[in-house]
């Protein structure tokens, strides 16, 4: 249905140079979305590789993960830093909350692909339903990240003992209780840049939801906009898969 790729196969050869045929059998909008996402992938690679460089430029923690104590002298083990879960104060559950966030984003990716699938069938009801679920998933993820940031900034009960005998709790761009200052800066930059992408995605999804509901796409004759926003949304999920591995696991 209204798939530009299927149209191009039927166009006679003599019209090939007079427009109407999409290069690479993908519509202009989808193609440009792909190349935008490629450039965005470079940006995220830049951030994650910076993390790798700075981590290797700092001393690593030597010893067992269980005995880990945070210090400004070496890079922290992420699983010992991100071990808090909402409503379970003081309980150490390494990576549980981040894994839950990953599941939420994967689920929202599935609902997004189901919305795209429904759009290909001109099934407005299901497009609306699945877009709404995707918005719910994206918003839940953002809420989780807001909690994660708040916890990171306010810190743990014990904090870190400074050389002047006082204790520092939480994190800012100058000092943090988890490790070298750059650790917190990279946390804010990488998860912040990704979170901003999710936020933009939720806005785009809301626009698509509104336009699908009011029948804009039906009048247009195709749901390609849902497909394009879908590409963006899956990309955001993809980036999180990499952030999960390189920031939280390794």
């Amino acid at each position: 249905m209204a798939n530009l790729a299927s149209v191009s196969a039927e166009v006679p050869k003599k019209y090939l140079w007079s427009g109407g045929v999409s290069p690479l059998k993908a519509s202009y909008g989808k193609l440009m979305m792909w190349f935008f996402l490629l450039s965005d992938a470079f940006t995220f690679s830049g951030l994650l590789i910076t993390y790798g460089l700075l981590r290797f430029a700092h001393p690593a923690y030597e010893g067992k993960a269980a005995d880990f104590v945070s210090s400004h002298d070496y890079w922290p083990i992420p699983e010992r830093v991100f071990d808090a879960v909402p409503f379970l104060h003081g309980v150490s559950l390494p990576l549980v909350f981040v894994a839950a966030m990953t599941f939420i984003l994967i689920l929202s990716s599935v609902t997004m692909v189901l919305a795209v699938e429904a759009g290909e069938r001109m099934d407005r009801k299901n497009v609306i339903k699945w877009l709404l679920w995707t918005i719910v998933g994206g918003s839940t993820f953002l809420a989780c990240q807001a909690w994660e940031w708040a916890h990171f900034i306010h810190g743990t009960d014990q904090g870190i003992l400074l050389s002047d005998g006082s204790r520092f709790f939480g994190a800012n761009l100058v000092i943090n209780e988890y490790g070298p200052p750059l650790f917190a800066s990279l946390f804010f930059f990488i998860t912040g840049f990704h979170g901003f992408h999710v936020l933009s995605g939720v806005f785009l999804l809301f626009i698509a939801f509104y336009q699908a509901t009011t029948g804009v796409y039906e009048r247009r004759g195709h749901y390609e906009m849902v497909e394009k926003i879908g590409l963006y949304w899956h990309f955001v999920d993809l980036v999180w898969v990499f952030v999960f591995t390189f920031f939280y696991l390794i």
Partner: peptide
């Protein structure tokens, strides 16, 4: 592929800085 190259180059560079 550029990303792969950048990973290798900058991880190596990180070790050199250390």
């Amino acid at each position: 592929i550029f990303v792969v190259w950048l990973v290798i180059a900058l991880i190596y560079e990180g070790g050199a800085i250390f």
